[in-house]
């Protein structure tokens, strides 16, 4: 399935190394120089990341996602969105593995190719673990004031489910 993308990294690696050698770059020296900086970045990221991931973990463990979902069920029923998939909408920004577990539950209970299963799969395929991404990216630059980063990212995440439900309905029916 991924035969095309499997070629990219090997070809890119060999291509860069050969091209640099032709240009008479000291490849070994340059690589080690860059790699050392990569290592330093990783060490820099860790302290902030521990705090941010603990916050995410506390929220996930508190059951707040489930409470919120129960609260939003009437809205789902009103617009014809599968309420099982609403848990996924709320959980997805916090937890990648949690989202996969919820997908598996939905697929097992409603069956393959059901409306809820397709909506859940599209949600997973078209979104990222938003809070992880923001935590990792801003830990790297030691930024304390992220200003409007979280609101902007969540505006996209928390409106995409409406489009998701509508698009799956258009293509496959309810």
């Amino acid at each position: 399935m991924n035969s095309f993308t499997d070629y990219i990294i090997p070809l890119l690696t060999v291509g860069v190394l050969v091209y640099a050698a032709i240009k008479r770059v000291d490849v070994f020296d340059a690589f080690c120089d860059g790699a050392a900086e990569g290592l330093k970045t990783c060490v820099d990221i860790l302290p902030a990341l521990v705090l941010l991931l603990v916050c995410i973990g506390m929220f996930r463990a508190s059951g707040a996602v489930e409470t919120l979902t129960a609260f939003l069920k009437p809205i789902c029923a009103a617009v014809g969105f599968p309420s099982e998939a609403m848990t996924l909408v709320i959980l997805r920004p916090f937890s990648g593995s949690g989202a996969m577990a919820v997908y598996n539950e939905i697929a097992a209970s409603t069956g393959a190719d059901s409306f809820a299963e397709r909506v859940a799969a599209v949600l997973i395929g078209s979104s990222e673990t938003t809070f992880y991404t923001i935590a990792v990216y801003f830990s790297a630059v030691k930024v304390k004031k992220t200003r409007y980063a979280v609101p902007a990212a969540l505006t996209a995440d928390l409106t995409a489910w409406i489009v998701c439900g509508a698009v799956v309905f258009m293509f496959f029916g309810g």
Partner: peptide, 29 residues
């Protein structure tokens, strides 16, 4: 989650070094 943050950074560390190394080579070329 504290442990997971360390695991995440460790799993990132190798590829981070690799790509930063390759990008530095590409930059000098």
């Amino acid at each position: 989650k504290s442990g997971e943050a360390v695991e995440l950074v460790i799993s990132l560390c190798g590829i981070m070094c690799f790509w930063c190394g390759i990008m530095r080579v590409a930059e000098r070329a």
